[in-house]
Amino acid sequence: MSSLLKQAWAEVVSPILKRPNRVQVAALCYRGSGDDKEVLLVTSRGTGRWILPKGWPMDGKNAAEAAREEAWEEAGVIEGQLDRAPIGEYSYDKTLDTGGVARCSAAVFPLKVEKLSADFPEADERTRKWVSPEEAADMVDEKGLRQLLRDF
Results as ranks from 00 to 15, higher is better:
residue 91 S to A: 10
residue 64 A to F: 01
residue 77 V to G: 08
residue 94 K to E: 13
residue 134 E to Q: 12
residue 79 E to N: 11
residue 13 V to W: 12
residue 128 R to H: 08
residue 80 G to L: 12
residue 6 K to T: 13
residue 113 V to L: 06
residue 96 L to G: 01
residue 128 R to T: 13
residue 92 Y to L: 06
residue 31 R to A: 11
residue 15 P to V: 11
residue 1 M to N: 13
residue 55 G to H: 04
residue 119 D to N: 15
residue 14 S to P: 00
residue 117 S to F: 06
residue 34 G to V: 02
residue 32 G to S: 10
residue 27 A to D: 01
residue 67 A to P: 00
residue 74 E to T: 08
residue 127 T to E: 15
residue 122 E to W: 07
residue 31 R to Y: 10
residue 109 F to V: 05
residue 113 V to Y: 02
residue 21 N to S: 15
residue 49 R to P: 04
residue 51 I to L: 07
residue 41 L to E: 12
residue 100 G to V: 02
residue 45 R to Y: 06
residue 93 D to N: 14
residue 107 A to Y: 10
residue 28 L to V: 03
residue 69 E to Y: 06
residue 5 L to M: 07
residue 41 L to S: 11
residue 75 A to H: 03
residue 81 Q to S: 07
residue 149 L to I: 04
residue 114 E to W: 14
residue 65 E to C: 06
residue 67 A to T: 00
residue 77 V to K: 09
residue 122 E to F: 08
residue 118 A to S: 15
residue 57 P to M: 08
residue 151 D to E: 11
residue 74 E to G: 12
residue 57 P to W: 01
residue 108 V to N: 07
residue 118 A to V: 13
residue 26 A to R: 01
residue 85 A to E: 14
residue 60 G to C: 00
residue 8 A to V: 12
residue 151 D to P: 05
residue 1 M to Y: 12
residue 30 Y to P: 10
residue 27 A to R: 01
residue 133 P to G: 09
